[in-house]
């Protein structure tokens, strides 16, 4: 029963992803790899659309992934699955709001949880960057991942690396562009991709 599985996978994502939309990325990556539902490249395309359309990224991603796997019912079920843990947890907290905020245990748990969340998203970022900018791939070897080189693509994607360097400068260093909305950079990159045939076709 695909819909039940879909609900369960997104319920888990909603329950364990702490820190908003981007924090769901490592879970979605694991979901694609574990079930064979979509590839990392598919996920990147879905993230691109989710970042550049109205709505919170996390919800857009859930809807898109759900739609890819199970059509319109899949989209609805994945989204409901992802928000269900939020609703339960927040309703519980709302009932005891003051004591939750001041409880020492909460601060302790989050002291450990925050760097872990940053680590998980960093790892997803490494995986994505290798996939997009290099010919290095992570392949499973039992319980561990090993790095391999895909002979079908060149080791370094020079056009991609050049664009990445420009974008890094524009989003961090250049004062006038630093605070622009991400959609500006996405649009710019789409145009650059088309002009310089980034997909090689």
């Amino acid at each position: 029963m695909i819909y039940l599985k879909l609900f369960w996978e997104f319920f888990k994502t909603g329950l364990f992803a702490v820190g908003g939309g981007m924090a769901t990325l490592p879970f979605l990556k694991a979901m694609g790899e574990g079930n064979g539902w979509f590839t990392d490249a598919d996920l990147m395309n879905m993230l691109a659309v989710s970042e550049s359309t109205p709505g919170p990224i996390g919800i857009n991603m859930a809807t898109y992934v759900g739609y890819t796997i199970g059509g319109v019912p899949g989209a609805v079920i994945a989204t409901i699955g992802e928000v269900t843990p939020s609703i339960i947890v927040i309703l519980l907290i709302a009932a005891v709001l003051q004591s939750f905020k001041d409880h020492p245990l909460v601060g302790k748990v989050f002291y450990g949880l925050r760097p872990a969340s940053a680590g998980l998203i960093s790892a997803a970022c490494v995986g994505v960057a290798l996939q997009v900018l290099t010919g290095v791939r992570t392949a499973s070897a039992g319980a561990v991942n090993v790095l391999t080189i895909d002979p079908a693509v060149s080791l370094l994607n020079w056009k991609g690396l050049a664009l990445a360097a420009v974008l890094l400068a524009l989003t961090n260093r250049v004062k006038v562009t630093r605070n622009l909305h991400p959609i500006v950079f996405i649009g710019l990159s789409a145009v650059v991709g088309m002009l310089f045939c980034f997909a090689g076709v």
Binding site: M44, S117, V128, L188, M194
Partner: peptide, 29 residues
């Protein structure tokens, strides 16, 4: 092809956007 090329460009941009997001998060965590 034109859509494939556009998405290939956007993927590079996403690497950078995710990297930026992680760096911000890392500073606080």
């Amino acid at each position: 092809p034109v859509v494939e090329n556009a998405f290939a460009g956007i993927q590079v941009c996403l690497c950078v956007l995710i990297f930026d997001a992680v760096m911000k998060l890392k500073k606080k965590a």
